[in-house]
């Protein structure tokens, strides 16, 4: 079955690389379980599905992954996104709190993880995030950065 990474990388079952990917079923199944664990967890820790999809779309855009941006935007459109959440998804920075702090954190950890420091976590706490929310947010940011890299690597293999 075609999954989110195949879609992002433009792979279909006829492609040789589609079969090569399945030489590692534990990577394919594992990545899909991870996707569900950060985008549709049983316990969302108070970070609702639309917010998670909006942040995922934003991270995909920072990675210039147009296929994943479209995929997340389409999933978000199937929910009940508010105009504010749509603005967050589209990369807006002028947002009310706590979304402004969330957006800043997501952009910064995606683009310049090396500069992260304790103060960045304190900002999230000051914006009202709990420890479970901070961890869940971190996993979401990190997952989408993983997903865009796998897709980027597979696309290059298809091109060469």
């Amino acid at each position: 079955m075609t999954d989110a990474i195949d879609k992002a990388a433009g792979l279909s079952p006829e492609d040789a690389l589609y079969a090569t990917r399945r030489f590692r079923p534990e990577f394919v199944d594992g990545a899909e379980l991870c996707r569900l664990s950060v985008l549709k967890p049983a316990n969302d820790q108070g970070l609702v599905a639309d917010l998670r999809l909006a942040l995922a779309q934003r991270i995909a855009a920072l990675n210039a992954d147009h296929a994943l941006v479209q995929d997340y935007a389409a999933q978000l459109a199937q929910g009940q996104p508010t105009p504010t959440v749509l603005a967050l998804a589209a990369g807006e920075t002028r947002l009310a709190e706590p979304l402004a702090t969330l957006a800043r954190h997501v952009d910064f950890v995606t683009l310049t993880p090396a500069s992260a420091e304790a103060g960045d976590i304190r900002r999230l706490e000051a914006a009202g995030l709990t420890s479970p929310q901070i961890v869940a947010l971190s996993e979401l940011i990190a997952f989408v950065n993983f997903q865009t890299k796998v897709a980027a690597g597979l696309r290059l293999m298809e091109l060469s």
């Binding site: 590692r24 990190a142 950065n145």
Partner: peptide, 19 residues
Amino acid sequence: VDLIHAISIFGWANRLMHV
């Protein structure tokens, strides 16, 4: 494909450990 995954999973793990 294995190498792409090894690099990419550290795009994840580094953003946890260092953040």
